[in-house]
Simulated assay, not measured.
Amino acid sequence: MFGPGLAALIGLFMLTVIYRFDGMSEIQRNLGLSSQSLLLIGLVSYLVGAALAVPVGLLLGARFPTAVTIPALGFLFFGVLLAAFADAGGLLLVGRAFTGLGTGAAAGATVALILKLRERRGVVAGVTAALAVLALVLAPVIGQLISEAVGFRVIQLAAIPFLLIALIANAVLGFVTLAAAKRQVPPIPYGMPAPPAGPVGPAGFTGDPWQSGGA
């Protein structure tokens, strides 16, 4: 769960990092966006992308968590880059949609893995939900501090090292899981054992009415 969970938390952080609690955000001011435009571009496009990708994560995440999470991180990476270098609302909208796709796939895979647990499912679900809420709440505060100091583009680019860490972690976990699965498969013998011979009766009769040891 660590791999897709980390990717989902990064995506949730990026969901609210472009906002602030006490007024107009830096990205809204720099791109000249109205409140309605920021709502459409920053939130609606993100949620639409997430809604499209969540079913994929739910269906495939429990069986193929690495195969789902690595492309999700790719979407997140691409979306963050587009948002970082956006000079207009259109490019920002595309970037937010890609970020939503990555977040939705990773979140769906995380939920699928939680549902697969047989023990401590409630504890894991509670901790995961608490971390998700924490990421959503802290993101505007951290985003405001960084954006006011060095601009809104830096807070987008700051997500890239964490995405790379998540990508490496998922790749390593995938290799470990694959190696463990191979060790559990019993070796296949080189040859099939010969079928047992039929009972040999008196006078060399083998049990087959068409073959016998006699004349």
Rank of each mutant, 00 (worst) to 15 (best):
A86N: 06
R120H: 07
L164G: 01
R96P: 07
L38F: 10
S37F: 03
T110H: 11
G198I: 09
T128Q: 13
F77C: 12
F64K: 07
L164D: 02
T69R: 03
A53R: 00
V17M: 05
T110P: 12
A106W: 05
Q28L: 00
I168M: 06
G32R: 04
L39N: 05
I155L: 08
L60R: 05
F175R: 13
G198T: 15
G61P: 03
M24S: 13
S147R: 03
L76M: 14
G3P: 12
A171R: 03
L52K: 03
A62Y: 10
A130W: 12
L82V: 08
P189K: 14
I114N: 06
I155C: 08
I10P: 04
M24A: 11
A129P: 06
L178M: 09
P189F: 14
F13T: 04
Q211D: 08
L164Q: 00
Q144F: 08
Y46F: 15
A109E: 03
A88Y: 08
A180M: 13
A215S: 11
T206K: 07
I188H: 14
P4A: 12
L9T: 01
L59M: 07
I188W: 10
G79M: 10
G74N: 04
R29D: 10
A7N: 03
G74L: 09
I160P: 02
L33H: 03
R29Q: 15
V200N: 13
G122I: 02
I188N: 12
L31F: 15
L173D: 11
F13S: 01
A7Y: 11
L173I: 11
V150N: 05
M14P: 00
F21A: 05
F175Y: 07
V54N: 09
Q184S: 13
A179W: 08
G214M: 10
E26C: 00
G214T: 05
V56P: 00
P195H: 01
Q211A: 06
G104M: 01
A84K: 07
Q184T: 13
A53E: 04
M192V: 10
A8N: 05
A50I: 07
A130Q: 09
P55D: 11
L115F: 10
L145N: 13
L38W: 06
G11V: 06
A135P: 03
E148A: 11
G104H: 02
Q184R: 15
G126L: 09
R118L: 07
V94Q: 07
G213N: 06
A105I: 08
K116R: 14
A180Y: 02
R120W: 02
G191H: 04
I10T: 01
A50L: 15
G95Q: 04
Q211H: 11
G32S: 01
A83D: 14
G143S: 01
G42H: 06
A169M: 13
G79K: 09
G191I: 13
L113Y: 11
F75D: 03
I160W: 03
A106D: 12
V94P: 05
A109M: 06
L167M: 11
L134A: 12
S25M: 09
G74A: 14
T206W: 09
I188R: 15
V124L: 12
L59A: 10
A50E: 13
Q156N: 09
L33K: 08
A197E: 14
Y19F: 10
R183A: 15
V80I: 10
V111I: 10
L81G: 07
N30D: 15
R121S: 00
L15N: 02
G198S: 11
G57I: 00
F175Q: 08
D208R: 04
